[in-house]
Design a protein around this nucleic acid. Structure first.
Length: 465
RNA sequence: UGCCCGGUAGCUCAGUGGCAGAGCAGGUGACUGUUAAUCACUUGGUCGCUGGUUCGAUCCCAGCCCGGGCAGCCA
């Protein structure tokens, strides 16, 4: 007999004579003549109430159906006599497939997120994490849907790379050399030519440069994959391994880039709002009371756009005392970004045209800047509660300017020969951005810590699962 | 990496320089179309580790380990 998912059974339009449900026991309440069992199979937040009558030949098994046990139930789907649920299942056969010892750590009552992180192998069975990871799955689907609907092509950029990309952060080394006894050159230095790839290799920090290659061939592309940063960051919004979405668009300028970013973020929110309504309701009840109003607000209002120079003026005139001083030429600090999006504009803000000196070498120099006020066509999208969720730019398509940018950042042209070639052969204006997938997921669910939106989070010192 | 907070029962936490506490979970029994059921009884401790101060340390001090927050780095 075909198994029915709890989700489908709960959505049934009428009673069903025989139905097979399989899942895990959330709670059991025994009465004299029968037992109530709440069965959850992860297909949705809610479970199905199962009633096992004491006269049933299988009733002895109920005793072993503790919280956490896996069970298989065949029976009738009928309208519930009790309040609290529309449908329930009257069991005809009942079997425990896998018992759960009484030390099953997931209790029916309050756990801290910190404790649940330590049982990452069991936490998906909790209401909260079940919901988080269903939303994560749907959000990934929506990412592809957004780009595929717009004729973007999905490019798989390498995970192991020899280029340190943009200096986006410290990198994890990839090697097969014997660390205890590495081959040495005549100078006594480690001989990287002997390594697996014949040179030093790392885990990628960004697929952007490779995505640019494909944008300069397929026009509209995006990457969506894992990225790695070996930064010793201890914050609620940084992970050593995270997923990033990086669209790259040929024949596109900064304006188009900002438009795309705004459309993208709104599309994702709208999709989750519609497709994961039950899970979002749960988050708004137990995680973040303002979640739904904030998401709806973001959908309705156009994002504010504000140049870096204007932002600096706003911060200077705010009357606030800053822990980090505000000055044109310095990076905006977290407290500044938070003020802009949470207090001043009270909505998502795209800040653009940042000082050239503090941004990456590949960003396009703005023409006609006042001396000492040189900027590049960079943009950051800031959202309330999280801060930076997107960072992007129009790329420098002019060979001489790109070389100047590399010189400014003390980069060796030899390492970027293929990147420079893109400007030699049919160069076009192009732009793109990176969206932190987990940060978007935090925004959409209201979950405050990035470790709780990744199935198995990697942070400094932690890789248990 | 810097600053700050925490570590006591399986979980969430209280507490004290002098016999280690509660709620929940677990166990036993009762009761009930129950809803994180309810009621009664009950098991359960290396008070993070190491050292120091003290007649006596879970409590005070130092070092270390672990968890968390904020900042920097960024997505």
């Amino acid at each position: 007999m075909q198994r029915t998912l709890v989700k489908d059974a709960l959505n049934s339009t009428g009673p069903i004579d025989t139905i097979l449900l399989q899942g895990w026991v959330r709670t059991r309440r025994d009465a004299k003549a029968f037992s109530f069992i709440e069965l959850n199979d992860g297909s949705c937040l809610k479970g199905m109430q199962v009633i096992v009558d004491a006269t049933l030949p299988d009733y002895a098994a109920v005793n072993r159906a503790n919280t956490g046990a896996s069970v298989s139930v065949r029976g009738k789907l009928v309208e519930s006599k009790g309040g609290g649920q529309k449908w329930e299942v009257i069991a005809e056969t009942f079997a425990v497939l896998g018992e759960a010892d009484t030390d099953y750590p997931l209790q029916k009552k309050g756990h801290t997120m910190e404790f649940l992180r330590e049982i990452a192998h069991l936490r998906p069975r909790s209401n909260l994490f079940g919901a988080v990871f269903r939303v994560r799955s749907r959000l990934a689907y929506a990412v592809h849907q957004f780009f595929q609907e717009r004729n973007f092509h999905y490019v798989h950029t390498p995970i192991v790379t020899a280029s340190d990309a943009e200096g986006a952060g410290d990198m994890f080394r990839v090697t097969t050399l014997d660390l205890a006894n590495p081959p040495k050159t005549e100078n006594g230095e480690i001989d990287n030519a002997e390594d697996f790839f014949g040179k030093k290799t790392f885990l990628t920090v960004s697929g952007q440069l490779e995505a640019e290659i494909f944008a300069c061939a397929l026009s509209n592309v995006y990457t969506f994959g894992p990225t790695f940063r070996a930064e010793n960051s201890h914050t609620s919004r940084h992970a050593s391994e995270f997923w990033m979405i990086e669209p790259e668009v040929a024949f596109c300028d900064l304006q188009g880039d900002m438009d795309l970013a705004e459309d993208f973020v709104k599309y994702l929110i709208r999709d989750i709002r519609e497709q994961c309504a039950g899970d979002l309701e749960f988050f708004s009840k137990f995680v973040d009371k303002d979640l739904l109003t904030r998401l709806d607000f973001v959908l309705e209002k156009p994002f504010v756009r504000c140049s870096y120079t204007e932002a600096v003026e706003i911060l200077e005139q705010s009357g606030k005392t800053w822990e980090h001083p505000v000055a044109w030429g310095d990076n905006l600090q977290s407290e500044h970004e938070r003020y802009l999006t949470e207090e001043h504009f009270k909505c998502p803000v795209t800040v653009y045209n940042y000082p050239r000196a503090i941004k990456a070498f590949y960003m396009r120099q703005t023409d006609g800047c006042a001396p000492g006020r040189e900027t590049v066509a960079a943009m950051d999208l800031l959202v309330p509660g999280i801060g930076e969720i997107i960072g992007g730019s129009q790329r420098e398509e002019r060979l001489d300017k790109l070389k100047a940018g590399m010189a400014l950042h003390h980069l060796d042209e030899k390492n970027y020969w293929w990147y420079l070639d893109l400007r030699r052969y049919g160069s076009v204006p192009h732009a793109g951005f990176g969206l932190g997938f987990e940060r978007m997921l935090m925004f959409v669910t209201g979950v405050a810590n990035i470790r709780d939106v990744i199935p198995f989070a990697r942070t400094p010192g932690t890789a248990e699962f």
